Simulated scan of single mutants.
Amino acid sequence: MSDVAAYSVIAPALIRPPASAAAAQMPLSAGAPRKDVRRCSACSMRSICMPQGLTPEELQGIESLICPSRTIKQGETIYRANDSFQSIYAVRAGSFKTVVMHRDGREHVTGFHLAGDSLGLDGVCSGHHSCDAVALEDSKVCIIPFHLLEAMCREVKAVQQHVHRMMGGEIVRESSQMMLLGTMSAEQRVATFLLNLSDRLRMRGYSPAEFHLRMTREEIGSYLGIKLETVSRMLSRFQRDGLLDTHGKDIRILDHDGLARV
């Protein structure tokens, strides 16, 4: 199974946590962090969603442009398809799905996003969002006005490089999804989903073997291009083969290498 596919094709569900134009011209050192924003330096997701190697002044500059964090209730949206693009969003806590609607009203899931991931980059190209971003559970996001971020990119090379990496990551994710849908069997798609989830949890310091899914099997099937029943059948097969243990949405990987050989 492709390492690229296993790593980048799917952003998983959240796990259980362990036991104005003038402002755009403001120099980095001119503003103190807003009092209603938790300091990025104290955020557990900093290593994932922030560029590394920032000076204290540069970090303060980033904190000064972040709008107050916003709580999104389960089932609510941050933005909808065709909404004007204004900001990008960093997921501080919780999880989201991005979806597009077919003409007949059916929903197609295009991605899952968890703490440390960014949302909204789909609007950069056209100036309008191309999908809906829906909370899978009560979640919280940091709001970053894009015109202010662009101004900072001109001042701080590390921020510019980080934005480029995020955009590049979106390209890799979309191309990997095309490979998944076009070349992999249903069994391989579900295995890739689980392997990717395991890897992402490991990167965040959580257990790579035990996790709780926040999305439904129907949503997983929609993303993988297979039916709900097929997702359930593949999970049952993996359990029967001794690769994992499932109890509802609780997943325990028993044989990582065996799952990778599917």
Rank of each mutant, 00 (worst) to 15 (best):
A32F: 15
P33Q: 03
P33Y: 03
D36T: 08
R39Y: 07
A42T: 02
M45D: 05
R46G: 11
Q52M: 07
G53Q: 05
E57W: 10
I62L: 11
E63W: 03
S64K: 00
I66M: 12
I66L: 13
C67V: 09
C67K: 10
C67I: 11
P68R: 12
S69E: 15
T71V: 14
I72W: 00
Q74D: 10
Q74L: 12
Y79W: 14
R80A: 14
D83W: 09
S84K: 12
Q86Y: 07
Q86H: 07
A90N: 07
R92P: 04
S95G: 15
S95W: 04
K97Q: 03
V100M: 14
M101A: 15
H102G: 14
G111L: 13
L114N: 15
L119V: 08
G120S: 08
D122R: 02
S126F: 03
H129L: 05
S130T: 07
C131A: 13
L136Y: 06
L136M: 14
V141M: 12
C142M: 15
P145F: 01
P145S: 03
P145V: 02
A151L: 02
C153L: 08
R154N: 02
V159R: 04
V159D: 02
Q160K: 06
V163Y: 00
V163S: 02
M166R: 03
M167W: 06
G168V: 05
